[in-house]
Design a protein around this nucleic acid. Structure first.
Length: 233
DNA sequence: ACATTAATTATGT
DNA sequence: ACATAATTAATGT
């Protein structure tokens, strides 16, 4: 197995404050693994034995309803921890983590979490901050689902994606990983048809540009206006 | 205001 | 050539 380079972790928030020697300790405990696109890093309900860091690629966190329908709970961009259920005291993973693209993942046994928090300066606080952000995001989404209508929900979803995983291009900000209309519908509790129609309409209005599995936002400001959705007050 | 159904076309391997 | 994605229109709740 090739030895991991220490520079891999220096840019990542929970590890940013650590000395090179500490980073070495952590890397030597890590198990690196490469996944092709569309594979599960871990499955919902499986024993939560490890926690993970996404070095490169993109992860979709998916829950399956009793009816067998998929709900996309969130997306994890490169550089973030995920699958930290063990740290929260869960014995199984509450959702499945799928790779949206080919991805490189590090993982550690769940037991090490508490050692990391105790030993490494900044790890606990940074990880806590991250959890806080995610919980906040989930709450926002719940409010959106309950109050907004589909066009606004989809607009919000797209805006979140370009904020978290945006990539500047010639004519706007592109979602940095392949995403289908079906995916968008599964994040917003809608259908791929509605998403398709809306994207087509937005394209006509010059707000987005889209191709198969690609969405580019050319006019973020107008999308924000749509996402806010001021109507019949 | 939206889903569903179904038929049609485009796109990537 | 085949499977997967996207569009579009018609119909339903």
């Amino acid at each position: 197995m090739a030895r991991l380079d220490g520079s891999l972790l220096t840019d990542i928030a929970p590890f940013a404050r650590l000395a090179p020697s500490q980073i070495r300790e952590i890397l030597d405990l890590a198990r690196p693994k490469r996944f092709d696109a569309g594979l599960a890093v871990f499955e919902e309900g499986a024993p939560a034995e490890r926690f993970f860091l996404l070095l490169d690629g993109h992860i979709r966190v998916v829950r399956t309803t009793p009816g067998g329908e998929q709900i996309i709970a969130m997306h994890i961009p490169a550089g973030q921890l995920f699958g930290i259920a063990p740290a929260l005291g869960h014995v199984t993973y509450p959702a499945t983590a799928m790779t949206a693209v080919e991805s490189l993942v590090l993982s550690w046994p769940a037991l090490h979490w508490h050692d990391f928090v105790a030993r490494y300066d900044g790890f606990g606080p940074e990880a806590g901050k991250m959890v806080g952000q995610r919980v906040g995001e989930m709450n926002d989404r719940i409010v959106e689902m309950a109050t907004l209508q589909v066009e606004q929900r989809i607009a919000n979803a797209v805006l979140r994606l370009i904020n978290q995983s945006g990539c500047k291009t010639e004519d706007g900000i592109e979602i940095a990983f392949p995403i289908t209309r079906q995916d968008l519908s599964e994040m917003t509790g809608s259908t791929l048809h509605t998403v398709s129609r809306l994207l087509s309409q937005w394209e006509r209005d010059g707000i987005v540009k889209s191709a198969r599995k690609r969405v580019i936002v050319t006019d973020p400001h107008r999308l924000v206006v749509i996402a806010a959705g001021r109507e019949w007050p």
